[in-house]
Simulated scan of single mutants.
Amino acid sequence: MATTARTIRPRWGTHLFLLTMSVMWLAPLLWAAYTALRPYGSTQRLGYFSVGGEYNLDNFARAWTQSGFLTYLTNSVIIVVPTVFFTLALSSMMAYAVTRVRWALSIPLLIAFTAGNLLPPQVLAAPLFAIFKNLRLPYWFSDSGSLLNTYISVIIVNLAFQVGFCTFVLANYMKALSPDLTEAALVDGAGVWRRYWSIVLPLCRPALAALATLEIIFIYNDFFWPLLFITSGDRLPVTTAIKNLQGQFFSDYNLLAAGALITLIPTLIVYLLLQRHFVAGLTLGSSKG
């Protein structure tokens, strides 16, 4: 009976910790939503830490039209979609090569990809900028004559830094797959590509969906690389559109809060659509001994 009582006893400490962390995590988001719903006149008269005044959606309408979110959102799609696609494609191939194919460099390459995740990307900002600036390209390909001020520069950098992380995750998942499946296909005469495309890749669908969700959020929210490599304002992604809402001598923080919430909507939609696959991918291997 004592054992049973200890088992079913509520874990008040755990629940209190989780509740506290949830409130701390949601407080800035809820405060931004509350600020965005109030006109600047109300907060100026009553203060930001107050209740009362008017509440409407005017800040969201102004933020959408004043910042040109539709143009910037299109730029984000141009950057995010090919980056996520090629990241998952290349990392799945690399993970298959280092886990399911026997060759001498499989372990060293996996270690190299894992070690690459420990390098802060920002330390390579100056060398990458110099390389992209001095890499001459025809003007029909780039109006700057180099990789600067192009979507490709941002795609290449994000691809380089994200492939290592995805390779590490997919390699761990592929190791847990039964080797009997690919060995049976090998006996039947299936080649390396056939075993990868028809057997291993479909089994990695939950892990790929989880990684796709994370990568879309990571790359969509990236602010540093686009601001470094893209100089034309009409090519910047949506995360940089908020700066258009900030005046030179005055900042309407209610308007900025509305703009920040608008940028959140696409990633929220992606997460809600892939939520089931994302949670399944996070719990993969939790029941394996």
Rank of each mutant, 00 (worst) to 15 (best):
A257N: 02
L109I: 13
T14V: 14
V98T: 14
L46F: 12
V77E: 07
A126C: 05
T7Q: 09
I219M: 07
Y72G: 01
W140D: 09
A27Q: 05
Q162T: 12
F278K: 03
M174H: 03
I8T: 12
F223R: 05
Q44G: 15
Q44C: 06
I152F: 04
Y139H: 14
F141E: 07
L124Q: 03
F69W: 09
A95V: 08
F129D: 02
I269G: 03
A207I: 09
A115Y: 04
G41V: 09
A27P: 00
P82E: 12
A160W: 08
F168R: 05
L30P: 00
I219Y: 02
F85S: 10
R276E: 15
L147R: 02
L256T: 09
M174I: 11
G259L: 12
A212C: 14
S146P: 00
S232D: 15
L228G: 01
S178A: 14
R276W: 09
L274P: 00
V192I: 14
V238K: 02
W140L: 10
A207T: 12
S146E: 06
V279C: 06
P121F: 13
I8D: 02
A27V: 13
N244V: 07
A160M: 10
L70T: 15
A130Q: 15
M93E: 05
Q44I: 06
V51C: 03
I199N: 04
L119D: 01
